[in-house]
Design a protein around this nucleic acid. Structure first.
Lengths: 197, 197
DNA sequence: ACAATAAACGAACGTTCGTACTATTTTGTC
DNA sequence: GACAAAATAGTACGAACGTTCGTTTATTGT
């Protein structure tokens, strides 16, 4: 099937454009021009703008998982894996996996007050992401690496906040030290909650 | 002058709409409809869409300063004032000062990769905000409330990240506990960096 | 090779966008 | 209350939006 290949190439580009201009700034005409496709030919792959947005979110999710999660799973469960996830996240910002910064941070703020299918999907994926962080934290407790009195939801909240903060400072403020600052904050927080010092 | 009054009422509404739909989702036609003005009548107050966006940012900035900064300045300089700023920020989210969540968090992520006057203004205001946080931290050091080896830029980064994280969790994830989590994280961080325990 | 199917195109739809003009109403001052 | 100025309305424009349609070109399976 050639259509599937075309669809994938459309979505790869759509993810990049959306990370730069937002999911609402992602327009079918512009996307078609950039890919040298006709508007109608591109449109036929999706059927509606909302469908295109949803498909773009799925494609971004795959990239996210591939770049952040899969590599981190190679590390042994417990604190090493949790730290690998954090490292992975920060390097994902530095490497510019999405040209406009973290796709999901941007989408989260863009759609946090816009009910609809798009919001629901973003919320679902962010729930998954925070849930995965919490799971990694719980594993670190089970392995005896982190103190038992740590609240996984609390720590996941804090780590995620530092990630978003790094994205903000790095991309908007052009603060080259942002990533280093986030790393330092993550490390000192985890160091404080370790069982063995 | 009646024009100035009209302009202010336009901007008040523009700030609310932009916090919900973004600065690019803020359209002149829609704004005119909501305010029962003609498109051209409204447009005449600004002269261009970009000017409207810039004026909206200024109006949002005034609201931000009024709601967060001015009340905090009533507290004595040093740790009390720094904590008041943090409290003020979190209550500003809970109170829904902007209907779509923090205007500047949203604008920061919307324009972090879109060069232009709007981005420059947002960057400038965010620099001011982080700078104000750093200043409050330095004052707390000068007053002997915070340890001298604290890096103001590092702590300001962390506090701001927790604020943005709270905004994210509260508005997108509907996490009622988000604000409490942020407060806890802020308090434990400040507690750790105090001179006297 | 050929028919069946899938994919892409081009033109047009109605709507909304931002912006430019001109006309009309409202306001403040003498 | 007349009059200039300021504020608002009205109309129109070209461009871009998402979407639909009928047609043409490529690809596939036999």
């Amino acid at each position: 099937m050639k259509g599937e290949r075309t669809r994938q190439s459309i979505l790869e580009r759509a993810v990049d454009v959306a990370s730069l201009e937002g999911l609402q700034g992602l327009t079918i005409g512009r996307l078609a021009d950039e890919l040298k496709l006709s508007k109608s030919g591109l449109f036929a792959h999706f059927g509606s703008k909302e469908d295109l947005q949803l498909a773009t979110i799925e494609a971004a999710s795959q990239r996210y998982i591939r770049e952040i999660f899969t590599p981190a799973l190679l590390h042994p469960r417990g604190l090493p894996r949790l730290m690998a996830i954090c490292e992975s996240w920060l390097s994902y910002i530095r490497r510019g996996v999405f040209p406009g910064g973290c796709f999901f941070a941007a989408a989260s703020f863009e759609f946090d007050s816009r009910p609809g299918l798009v919001q629901e999907r973003i919320r679902g994926l962010m729930d998954d992401w925070i849930g995965a962080l919490e799971k990694a934290i719980r594993m670190a407790q089970d392995e005896g690496h982190l103190r038992q009195d740590v609240d996984p939801a609390q720590l996941a909240f804090e780590l995620n906040a530092l990630f978003f903060g790094a994205n903000f400072a790095f991309y908007l403020r052009n603060d080259e030290q942002a990533i280093e600052r986030a790393r330092k904050a993550v490390e000192s927080r985890l160091e404080m909650l370790r069982t063995i010092h």
